[in-house]
Design a binder for these strands. Structure first.
Lengths: 344, 344
DNA sequence: CTGAAAGCGCTTACAG
DNA sequence: CTGAAAGCGCTTACAG
């Protein structure tokens, strides 16, 4: 069978047909190796004839580089993660690296996932919105594989991290809603296991409290989904002191909240209620929504990630890269009624 | 340095510490191998002590299985692909397989991408909405790696394929718009390089023409994006014989079209114009849209894909699995004015 | 159940 | 520039 023969073609077969050593065929397929054009020509011809495909696993065994980077994402229902993945895939592809994707089912098997990444000898590990034990972090460090956390910082871990400035983002959001005349505030929050959510919320609450002396803020859990945001909005808006301004800790929840407010509660946005989100997912720009939001700087995050996983970048000391918040104003918020909010 | 030592721990180190052979350590880490509990215990202890992580690349060299399946997706801006990826990732994870992701930049390097997949010795190749040369298909077949195309069928290729029934979907959509009283029709189409788009469009046109004798259908290219759909809708609606019914070959374009119709043209949906999409992405269910659509059966597609890439499934003969269209009625279409449309 | 040995397909000093 | 040889870290008949 041609099938059997074909599946066994290796560098020796090519070498034999070309009448050269296996070192020669290895060299012609290794950019930068010293082979005469004549030799390379012979080898390539033989390789083509046999449909030879080099085994990168075997070569990785020796070179100790796989050109595979592992990426761990919590899910893809939130478009931010799609965007992160998409951008990472693009940049990696440009650099001839492969992306090995992991989306752990339950939060509990992060460490097992990490273990599998190491078994595959990945060159680097990128983790978004998930945690990792210090034991595993040490293991990665010990094996010289860089780890970068996206959108989360764990000072105790001594791994790289890249994230938006949640503190700054929260303050910017708070300033905007206040400047728009906001008096009563609500927050639709997400799972507290995501530190980013916590940081955003705390920044907002602190600003409201310290600067504006506002203490009673309605908070509801939007569960990081459209439906959750929808329900959370209904909950928040059913209270006696109905908010006129709502912070949604992610855009996807904000979209749900907007739909609930418009179509279930029949209120106007931003006249009756102003909303601001976080992330800037594509849908937020749709004319149906026009959500004002604090953008998650996906491209810049991936740009820094690429630098951090480069072999030239030392693992130690771990770098913490913080990217400034970027406000995207659309139509879900009110214009400043005066300058007091923005200046204070 | 502990770093250096740690990065060199292999089965020999473990064997030495445990006082056994390397075969023994290999066996304790290979489920189903015959090792006495006593031996396994000794080995595990030594392995833990050294933070040993087996090198799956080395073992793949011998077992000829990597447990890696390669997935090629055109992009992630369309949420259908996110859904496909998400579901595939989930199912693969459950089966202890890894997902190696490829998103080729230009259509031209599909073959090069495929080559790289083979270099990594992936167990299977899954391709969505992209083409592959017959040469590469033969190469995969020759190396015994199953290839399954998602949402596209190429009879000439002799690889597996799984897809929704585009013909049936197109007809279902046409029937619905006709039953809703549609008289003048428009189509917002996508890139013709995607056979699925072509099939949907042809099914619609054929049905309109053959069954209803409707020949002049306005067609505009929506470029498979929200913005493209928006522009295409403006274009189609600016013609003299303004359509009262529009087919959008993907939901994402339908969303753009809806926004254009409502907010730019100030027309009502479905009273002035009815729209139907294809895919059923999450946004289509949002209350702001309520898009009636023909669902792409993502879960069932991935389910079949998993079966097709199983080692038990023979590569030959290639299987073509066709999944029936599923109509999801929401509020962007009109109710049947009478039975004539649905019955004919 | 266990170990010694061959070998998976490649790369890389080393010597020429 | 080229080849012979050692070796990357593992698995698997084979013999005991």
């Amino acid at each position: 069978m041609s099938r059997k023969r074909s599946s066994k073609v290796n560098s020796m077969d090519v070498a034999r047909l070309a009448g050269v050593s296996i070192a020669a065929v290895s060299r012609t397929f290794t950019p930068g190796s010293s082979v005469s054009p004549k030799m390379a020509e012979k080898v390539r011809k033989a390789a083509d004839q046999l449909s030879y495909v080099p085994n990168s696993l075997a070569s990785s065994l020796i070179t100790r580089r796989t050109n595979i980077v592992a990426l761990m994402l919590p899910n893809l229902v939130n478009q931010v993660y799609s965007a992160l993945l998409s951008e990472a895939s693009l940049r990696l592809e440009e650099n001839n690296k492969q992306l090995l994707l992991f989306t752990p089912l339950n939060d509990s098997d992060f460490d097992r996932t990490l273990q599998r990444m190491l078994e595959y000898q990945v060159d680097a590990i990128v983790i978004s919105a998930a945690s990792i034990s210090s034991r595993m972090a040490a293991l990665c460090l010990g094996r010289d594989v860089p780890v970068v956390m996206l959108g989360r910082h764990m000072p105790s871990l001594s791994v790289h991290s890249v994230r938006g400035n949640a503190e700054d983002g929260g303050i910017t959001a708070a300033k905007l809603l206040i400047s728009g005349g906001g008096k009563r505030f609500g927050i639709i929050s997400g799972s507290q296991t995501f530190t980013t959510m916590l940081e955003r919320q705390q920044a907002i609450l602190r600003y409201l409290s310290v600067i504006k002396n506002i203490e009673n803020v309605a908070i509801a859990d939007g569960k990081l989904t459209y439906e959750g945001g929808y329900q959370a909005a209904l909950e928040i808006m059913s209270g006696e002191d109905r908010p006129d301004s709502i912070f949604c800790l992610t855009d996807i929840m904000a979209l749900g909240a907007m739909d609930a407010i418009r179509y279930n509660l029949n209120l106007r946005i931003p006249e009756d209620v102003a909303l601001i989100g976080f992330d800037d997912i594509p849908e937020s720009a749709h004319e149906s929504y026009g959500l004002t939001t604090i953008r998650t700087p996906v491209r810049r995050m991936i740009h820094h990630m690429m630098n951090l996983i480069a072999p030239e970048t030392p693992l130690d000391p771990p770098q913490t890269i913080m990217i400034d918040a970027e406000l995207v104003i659309r139509s879900s918020t009110r214009l400043a009624v005066n300058n007091s909010g923005l200046d204070s």
